[in-house]
Design a protein around this nucleic acid. Sequence first.
DNA 1: TAGTGGTCTAGACCACATC
DNA 2: ATGTGGTCTAGACCACTAA
Lengths: 271, 271
Amino acid sequence: MQELLDNRDMPDSDRGAAAAASGSAATASTPSFSPLYQQIKALLVQGLQAGEWLPGQSIPSEIELAARFRVSQGTVRKAIDEMATENMLVRRQGKGTFVATHAEQSTQYRFLRLMPDDGSAAPLQRHLLECRRMRAPAEVARLLGLKAGEAAVQVRRLLLAAEGRALRPVVLDDLWLPGTPFKGLTAERLQAWRGPMYRLFEAEFSVHMIRAVEKVRAVAAPAEEAGLLQVPVGSPLLSVERLSFTYGDRPVELRRGLYDTAAHHYRNELS
Amino acid sequence: MQELLDNRDMPDSDRGAAAAASGSAATASTPSFSPLYQQIKALLVQGLQAGEWLPGQSIPSEIELAARFRVSQGTVRKAIDEMATENMLVRRQGKGTFVATHAEQSTQYRFLRLMPDDGSAAPLQRHLLECRRMRAPAEVARLLGLKAGEAAVQVRRLLLAAEGRALRPVVLDDLWLPGTPFKGLTAERLQAWRGPMYRLFEAEFSVHMIRAVEKVRAVAAPAEEAGLLQVPVGSPLLSVERLSFTYGDRPVELRRGLYDTAAHHYRNELS
DNA sequence: TAGTGGTCTAGACCACATC
DNA sequence: ATGTGGTCTAGACCACTAA
């Protein structure tokens, strides 16, 4: 365990030996104030990052964590609360607090905002087109924080919706993943996997996506992509460029999707 | 002030006379448990809805609210916390808690997700094309919860970005507003207004948007719209259909935007 | 019955803004 | 100096789950 900074004048203190490190008597120049619960949160994030608790598993109870960190339960609570609202942890009353995973039905489509125009919830079929290791193109390397020419894995796949008894392609996804963490990712592995792709990344490669940023535009379908999506060349398609991040805000996936929005739409909640 | 439900066995109770209304001894069949802080929150929302505190103004201090509702400060705190994360209130340490408004620079573009591809933050110019009262079309009436044929206000406008020393149209917005709350909305009023449109709605019509849902698609530019946006007919455009809500989750605006995403993109954060 | 998270309280003290 | 929100504590009790 690590020392916690104590920002107080320590009337009762025996909380570690970090007394003079920060707070009103701090020697540092500028911010130098971090609430205890933020420090606890940082430690918990470190634990997640280090794999101390794996997705789906429960973390120690609030009381146990409070004892471990020598703080009150309420302080641990506030740290966990924030992590829960950020979807890193999931609280379950009576059972415990669990590391979030992409396995659950509820979070199945947390990152896929495409919805059928009618409310139908039919899941999309996957069809893998390609999976190969390559040197990351300059732009990809830049966005993923790789050195020029470093290894990357490229994946291309289709998502298809049931239409009557036929299947219509709706999404064409191109993914780039950093080669190092995704060493053993092969077409076979992807092909065999049943379940969300991000769940595979968690289970097999210890990469947990917790956040992403998307840039959405309207584009005209290029010839090759139009063919794959079975739409006329030049049709309007939604281009969705996604950069996904793991715990340390490290980018670990670049994805470019082309969505056919004839019978689907990209749904977004503003607040 | 209103009575609060007490879900406890009331060891100390003199908190109103609502003792038997709910809780473990409830006669109601199903949910029948609502934490105190949720009740407080509901009361505060009612206050906002009733205009007891106007956007930009401060609400009473936590201590004062705690006294008024006869609960502890911590309980009020939790209610306010939730409303703050939902962007209904804004907390300012040392100053107070304020009703959120669309006036502030920070929330200027809370609902407009369109960003220039380069980071430039040049604000968009507005150009009003139309503002007229009419009978709401069936589809509009349905979405806004109006009776068939009820009055509505339609607004059409362009947003233009500076490009060199020229202006390029980037957004074509079509809005429908319910006629009743927006009684006095005219082209002149809109024309004269400096500032965000939602700020006008707050200030002049007491309509505060707090939430919205958007459906985004790629479409081919129709002739008329292509002309207004100065793009070739059939160009891919982003179609953004937005339904905005006020306090009681009442829909009060339907907006259909066409975005030219040649030099801009729709930005979205996933978590 | 025991253990977990969820609610609520009361009180102390800190950080920030204002007078 | 005062008042506001922000942090932290300690303890009681409630709601839910599982053995």
